[in-house]
């Protein structure tokens, strides 16, 4: 508990997490308002479309998470941390936990704010959360943010430099996965197993939360063959493996 408190103090006594949280909320809600506000008979607002902007918030969250680690290296406070807590694995796990919890909270707030805005903009649309798929599509956003923040923390620990870690994360998230699809013949098969594509499967499943709307007109569905539950497990396992590698590396390296 002590270590969690330490990391909470560290995270919340600088301004950047607050700014990132605000940016995540505003950007995501902004895109949602744009999409949902423009919904009409042909493309009605759905539960899935209320979460249209989630990937933008996801990018901001990963920046927040990576920065929380890389600024420690940049300003040398990681050394103070390891000096105070020589058990590096414990210190880094605590840091990861705190960041993941913060990401979860930001994600849930963002998701439900987006959903709420959509209700206000399209009072007539069927936006009620009346199936598991609907619930997952909204409440699952925070969970995906939390797991993604773990990935970002792991990358931050491995790369140690802010610019490097952030570009790696953003380029991967925004471009690499979709570009892999373009590889002839095997591209699609690989893409099925790439983590962020799988995470999308967890959120949108087979498109149940997008009922009443053409699949290609809503958020694109994931090509992952896993069920939503297994998709989440796969995504989380990917993050866990990456974090294990990162922590093992940090333990071996000189601080």
């Amino acid at each position: 508990m002590t270590l969690l408190a330490v990391e909470r103090i560290k995270l919340l006594t600088t301004r950047s997490p607050w700014w990132c949280a605000l940016v995540a909320l505003v950007v995501t809600a902004g895109f949602t308002a744009l999409v949902v506000g423009n919904a009409d008979e042909e493309f009605p607002a759905t539960v899935a479309s209320t979460q249209f902007g989630y990937s933008f918030g996801l990018a901001v969250i990963m920046v927040l998470a990576a920065l929380a680690v890389t600024t420690e290296y940049r300003f040398g406070t990681i050394r103070t941390t390891f000096q105070a807590v020589p058990n590096r694995a414990a210190a880094l796990l605590a840091k990861t936990t705190v960041i993941a919890v913060l990401s979860l909270i930001i994600g849930e707030i963002t998701a439900f704010v987006c959903w709420g805005i959509s209700l206000l903009l399209q009072p007539g649309a069927d936006l009620a959360l009346n199936s598991t798929a609907d619930w997952i599509n909204v409440a699952g956003v925070g969970v995906v943010y939390a797991v993604a923040s773990v990935i970002a923390v792991a990358v931050g620990i491995l790369v140690r430099h802010s610019a490097g870690a952030i570009s790696l994360l953003l380029i991967y998230n925004l471009a690499v996965e979709s570009l892999i699809q373009l590889i002839p013949s095997i591209g699609d098969d690989i893409y099925k197993w790439l983590p962020f594509n799988v995470a999308n499967k967890f959120l949108t499943g087979a498109g149940e939360s997008n009922a009443g709307r053409m699949a290609e007109a809503g958020a694109p569905l994931s090509s992952s063959p896993l069920s939503p539950g297994w998709a989440l497990a796969y995504f989380a396992a990917f993050a866990a493996v990456l974090l294990t590698i990162a922590i093992t590396t940090a333990k071996r390296r000189d601080a």
Partner: peptide, 27 residues
């Protein structure tokens, strides 16, 4: 207790908060 490099402080954190997290880590 060690002072190795005075610059090992996050520039946006206040002195009190800097010491608070360190204190907390060692009860």
């Amino acid at each position: 207790g060690a002072l190795l490099e005075a610059g090992w402080v996050h520039p946006n954190r206040s002195a009190r908060n800097h010491l608070r997290w360190i204190a907390r880590s060692n009860d």
